[in-house]
């Protein structure tokens, strides 16, 4: 693909994305697009830590739920404007990310152990959220309905544009990471921690920064979720379902690539919508689909769809050269 074609393609998709709400007739498709883009954004957050940093988290719900609860509690208990919930969610998600990273990386957890401990952290928070009063315990929290931009309840189309902006910001951020010292060192740590350390890279500090960043981004996603649905409870916030959906997105699309999470989220949600229409909307069925998809992807396309494109492009090189 030539640079010109690439740019044209990008421009066209940008225009299409901006014009989408004008042509989408039903609220259903706007909501579908919102969810797809929200998970493209969350998947990018996971991708920073898991794709570029090589640290697979099985508990990103920890950050998502913390962001969501922070904004919801600030609003219901302290009357904070939900717009301020966005930075608050980032702060809360980042702080929890930093703490989780400090604990697990300090003691040298990696690979499977890191995945297990993140899962356990999320579960601890789920149990706590179920038990303490200020999260509304098992009943959950309702955010009062106050439509309008002022209270960050701009309606489906407004939400669509907000999450679209977030996705663009996250794409830009991933591009920055690929072209910065931070990203170069992070990828070096992913590839070989000892070799990176020998070259003066402080792997521990980098990983903590990556998980804090990823946590902050994920926290913002949680805030948006709670503003859209106006409700949160412990299993929505901290349940394994969210963690799995977040990690599926970049794995399907392509780990450690800029567009992987976006591609992954579109494919995942389109396919799961299709599956829902064929098999009906029984509880659990879409997660069966997610589970099978995860197995199939890792089995046949471990580099994700972006990896498939890249492999194809590489195969073309000798012909052109």
């Amino acid at each position: 693909m030539s640079a010109w074609l690439q740019r044209a393609l990008l421009g066209a998709s940008l225009l299409a994305a901006l014009a989408f709400p004008l042509v989408a007739e039903s609220g259903f498709w706007i909501k579908f697009a919102f969810t797809t883009l929200l998970f493209a954004y969350l998947g990018q957050a996971w991708n920073i830590l898991g794709g570029y940093g090589g640290q697979f988290s099985f508990g990103h719900a920890l950050f998502f739920g913390t962001g969501a609860y922070a904004a919801a509690i600030a609003q219901t208990a302290f009357g904070l404007n939900p717009w301020l919930g966005l930075p608050l969610g980032a702060l809360a998600g980042g702080a929890v990310g930093w703490a989780a990273g400090y604990l697990s990386f300090r003691y040298g957890l990696r690979g499977s152990y890191f995945a297990l401990v993140t899962l356990a952290f999320a579960e601890v928070f789920r149990i706590l959220a179920n038990a303490v009063p200020f999260t509304g315990a098992g009943v959950g929290l309702f955010v009062p309905l106050q439509p309008g931009w002022a209270q960050l309840q701009p309606g489906p189309i407004g939400f669509y544009y907000i999450v679209l902006a977030l996705v663009f910001a996250s794409l830009w951020f991933a591009w920055r990471i690929e072209n910065s010292r931070f990203g170069a060192q992070l990828m070096a740590v992913r590839e070989n921690e000892a070799a990176a350390a020998a070259l003066g890279v402080d792997a521990y500090a980098l990983k903590v920064r990556a998980i804090a960043l990823s946590g902050a981004m994920t926290g913002v996603g949680g805030v948006l979720y709670v503003q859209f649905y106006l409700y949160i409870d412990p299993s929505l916030a901290y349940g394994p379902g969210i963690s799995v959906e977040i990690l599926l997105v970049p794995i399907i699309g392509g780990l450690g690539t800029i567009f992987g999470p976006l591609i992954g989220s579109i494919v995942l949600h389109a396919a799961s919508e299709l599956a829902r229409r064929i098999m009906g909307d029984a509880p659990g069925i879409h997660l069966v689909f997610y589970g099978v998809l995860l197995v199939v992807m890792v089995r046949f396309l471990p580099d994700g769809l972006a990896g498939l494109l890249r492999r194809k492009r590489k195969a073309e090189v000798p012909r052109n050269a």
Binding site: F58, S112, A115, V244, I251, I285, G291, L294, V295, V298
Partner: peptide, 13 residues
Amino acid sequence: LLVTLGISIAIEN
């Protein structure tokens, strides 16, 4: 880890 996670999600649901 991912594959066994996928299997467990599929079976459970």
